[in-house]
Design a protein around this nucleic acid. Structure first.
Length: 609
DNA sequence: TCCCCGAGCGCC
DNA sequence: AAAGGGCGCTCGGGGA
């Protein structure tokens, strides 16, 4: 047995290192005396489902005492960790979805068993202040929270110690965690401190959660548990199709590159010195070809975007067309199919990492498979993912969720009545602006739609013009018509802005506190709508879970849940999921639209398989 | 070499 | 009066 004495916020912390099996009884004695435990793992990497992933060590803490168990050294250590997890009444973990998926996969303790007794300090932190550090919040990393709430110096030391060790050992951070010896003193101290911090943070943060948001604590842990189950299950990748797609996109890129090089040579430039992915270089070539009327980026550089390349291509500039083709092919290949293939586990399943409260509005984000950003105008990329064997892809999405939530919660009687009648809200706005003769095929309806969305995002006339390319006068008209027609929304926005200016934050329909930047009070309405909408999807996932749908869920995507259903019952299940997800807010129903496709996700977007 | 930012583009 | 919200990913480029 080895012990380390550490300091935290002026107090002494004792860390015990279990080195041999002889040390286990002492650990067991200690563990028996504590029902509430901080917990953390050290692993080879963050890619839980990649081959070669291992749990290296686990640590427990109670108050200012912590223990380190070298799990990878012998199954007996793992067994003690398992028993301790099972017998604990409460667990305090920072970013529990990670550590509980690790425990599930590497120790065989189901995450569904541990989640109900876990308090995740990441969740608590986001309920206290959802903002990231660069947005003016504390941030949510363990170091950031330690610095903000416990001990600035200790936070620096913890972070610094790993960096110094990497330097001293000439390792990158990634290889450090794979290779560092479990006997390494710095590593042990670093590891021993983490569960202590989780413990202290759990107590500290709990007291700081606003009263209105307290009821969200259990709810957010439920959402996190369900999303962890979804991550664990994974989404089946069609490897053959995906490989071919990646290959074809690369070929397209090669072809475009040859044209680019030929064009560059014509200008007496060395193609080897030209990088088609560099906008600076592309801009200078375009200038040589005679175009110089660039729009500027915020930092004052020549703006080279799709719109410009498209314009130049249509004017006959071969170079511009080839750059456009090249960028799309290369970007698509590396962002989608190649990333999927790299992410897939040995069974061909991709495990997306779902950050259930990532955005400052608590909207979810998904990394690994950046599932929320796949092209939707084209089925090509979504075709990569399949329902399980014998199953079909299905989706249930909400109809007009954010506009309905905005109308219902403002409340805005005109909007509510329109939705209840089943009217076309975009047409309604267009008619208010441009006259009752407008029909749904007129371009004015698009302007109405533009105003509806832009206003919900907190935008003004300029935003409508920028997005929808209509004359300024028309934009002013439709902007004014929106304010006059939906007076409830307008005054609600004012009320939120007033609150934001007065308190620095607003409170959503579910009691969540959202801080609003001083310079951007107009964003309050959008925060309110986006966050309240997110909670409708969140609550729906809990209802789906209770009804047994979790094993069939594949991804949550903002206002939509994607499923894999057994083929025979797919329509019935989709209908039932749609019924469960439907929710009434402020007397207005937010209806759902269940859709059953074929084997692939792409089939819901037009693919024939 | 690593890390962070800007630019651009994908989605809701 | 005016104010477009929230993300993830890739690449290039600059600074430590």
């Amino acid at each position: 047995m080895r012990t380390h004495e550490m300091r935290l916020a002026g107090r002494s912390v004792i860390g015990h290192v279990v080195e041999t099996e002889d040390d286990l009884p002492a650990f067991a004695d200690w563990a028996k005396q504590h029902t509430e435990l901080g917990f953390d793992n050290e692993t080879t990497s963050l890619d839980i489902y990649q081959p070669g992933f291992r749990l290296r060590a686990s640590q427990f803490s109670a108050g200012a005492e912590s223990w380190f168990l070298p799990v990878e050294r012998h199954p007996r250590f793992a067994w003690y960790v398992t028993q301790t997890l099972r017998h604990a009444k409460k667990l305090y973990i920072h970013n529990a979805p990670f550590d509980l998926q690790v425990a599930d996969r590497c120790l065989g303790v189901p995450l569904g068993e541990l989640f109900p007794k876990t308090t995740d300090t990441g969740i608590l932190s986001r309920l206290v202040d959802s903002r990231d550090r660069k947005e003016g919040g504390t941030g949510h990393k363990l170091e950031e929270l330690t610095a903000a709430y416990i001990d600035k110096v200790a936070a620096e030391q913890i972070k610094g110690s790993v960096r110094e060790q990497c330097k001293a050992l000439k390792l990158t951070k990634a290889t450090y965690f794979k290779q560092v010896s479990l006997d390494d003193e710095f590593f042990q101290i670093y590891a021993l401190m983490d569960p202590v911090l989780a413990w202290v943070l759990a107590k500290t943060l709990d007291r700081k959660i606003p009263a209105s948001a307290r009821r969200l604590i259990r709810y957010e842990h439920e959402v996190a548990r369900i999303c962890s189950e979804i991550s664990k299950k994974g989404f089946l990748l069609d490897r053959e199709y995906t490989t071919e797609l990646a290959h074809n996109l690369r070929l397209d890129g090669e072809e475009a590159l040859q044209i680019i090089e030929a064009e560059v040579e014509k200008l007496d430039l060395d193609p080897d010195d030209f990088n088609p992915s560099s906008n600076d270089q592309v801009a200078s070539v375009i200038q040589l070809l005679g175009f110089s009327d660039f729009k500027k980026t915020p930092k004052g550089k020549d703006k080279v975007d799709d719109a410009l390349l498209e314009q130049l291509a249509s004017e006959g500039m071969t170079f511009a067309k080839a750059i456009k083709d090249y960028k799309k092919a290369i970007k698509w290949a590396s962002t989608w199919p190649e990333a999927f293939l790299a992410n897939a586990d040995e069974n061909g399943r991709c495990h997306a990492n779902i950050n259930t409260m990532q955005a400052r509005t608590a909207r979810m984000s998904i990394t690994g498979i950046p599932a929320q950003t796949l092209p939707s105008a084209d089925w090509m990329v979504r075709r990569c993912f399949l329902a399980d064997e014998g199953e079909v892809a299905a989706s249930v999405d909400y109809s007009n969720m954010e506009l309905r939530v905005m109308g219902a919660l403002a409340p805005d009687p005109v909007m509510i009545a329109a939705f209840k009648r089943g009217d076309d809200l975009h047409l309604l706005t267009a008619r208010a602006a441009f006259g009752d003769h407008i029909t749904k095929d007129d371009k004015e309806r698009k302007y109405g739609k533009g105003a509806n969305f832009t206003k919900a995002f907190g935008g003004g006339v300029n935003a409508i013009v920028a997005q929808y390319g209509l004359p300024l006068a028309a934009a002013q008209k439709v902007d004014r018509a929106f304010d006059d027609t939906y007076k409830g929304v307008t005054s609600f926005s004012k009320k939120l802005q007033k609150q934001a200016r007065r308190d620095g934050y607003i409170e959503t329909a579910t009691g969540r506190r959202l801080y609003v930047d001083k310079e951007r009070p107009y964003s309050a309405l959008n925060y309110y709508v986006q966050s309240s909408s997110r909670d409708i999807t969140g609550a729906a996932m809990i209802r789906l879970d209770k009804a047994g749908f979790t094993p069939m869920m594949r991804l949550p995507i903002h206002d939509e849940v994607l499923f894999s259903f057994p083929q025979r019952d797919a329509h019935e299940l989709a209908h039932e999921a749609g019924r469960l997800m439907t929710q009434t807010v402020g007397g207005l129903e937010v209806p759902t639209d269940p859709e059953v496709g074929g084997r692939s996700w792409g089939s819901l977007y037009g693919a024939d398989y």
